[in-house]
């Protein structure tokens, strides 16, 4: 089983993107689920969500404490909360940032753990392609590129269906342009 923790801010579309991921996995015959965690209901406040992917049905219904992957929609969260808490060795991180991996100033807990980190300026990409700085669908493109955990064309179809062509194009751009580092 693969466990994913999403971090973002209210209004960035964490729930919608995670739901597209879950839908896409289920459409390809595997199992997945997503539990959103709603804190205070306002734009800009930190939000979380927890997803799991498996080849068999998933009984567990709790939050994710030792993720195999982090999806971070906003790099300013790194200064506020320990987003890397519990991250497993040989894990994946997908982060929305205009910084380089050095500039991200990763905490010690996220170093030398065999982490593959994908950095994409998803807000900028979304602004340019979609005309709105909402990074969620763009981040999905980067997620697929970094992890290869879900079929690319299925995700693309679901983005198309739910959001339209521009969002699918932004996701494709992120798929191609995400910078991947090993730490």
């Amino acid at each position: 089983m693969k466990e994913i923790r999403f971090h973002g801010r209210g209004g960035q579309g964490v729930v919608k993107s995670a739901q597209i991921l879950v839908k896409s996995v289920i459409e390809t015959g595997e199992y997945a689920h997503f539990i959103p965690f709603f804190g205070v209901e306002r734009k800009g406040s930190p939000v979380y969500g927890f997803a799991r992917i498996d080849s068999q049905s998933i009984d567990i219904k709790s939050q994710v404490y030792e993720p195999d992957c982090l999806v971070i929609m906003d790099d300013s969260l790194l200064d506020q909360i320990d987003v890397f808490e519990g991250l497993r060795n040989n894990s994946y991180v997908v982060i929305n940032s205009r910084k380089s991996v050095e500039e991200l100033n990763l905490p010690e807990s996220a170093q030398n753990i065999g982490m593959k980190i994908g950095i994409i300026d998803a807000t900028e990409t979304a602004l340019n392609v979609i005309g709105k700085g909402i990074p969620n669908t763009t981040m999905l493109g980067a997620f697929v590129s970094v992890t290869s955990w879900v079929d690319k064309s299925t995700v693309e179809n679901n983005i198309l269906k739910q959001f339209g062509e521009e969002n699918a194009r932004a996701a494709q751009k992120a798929y191609e342009e995400v910078k991947i580092y090993e730490c």
């Binding site: 879950v22 839908k23 689920h33 997503f34 539990i35 959103p36 965690f37 998933i58 219904k61």
Partner: peptide, 10 residues
């Protein structure tokens, strides 16, 4: 509530 009402699964 939330753990199922807002959980998405198959």
């Amino acid at each position: 509530g939330f753990f199922l009402s807002h959980l998405m699964e198959r």
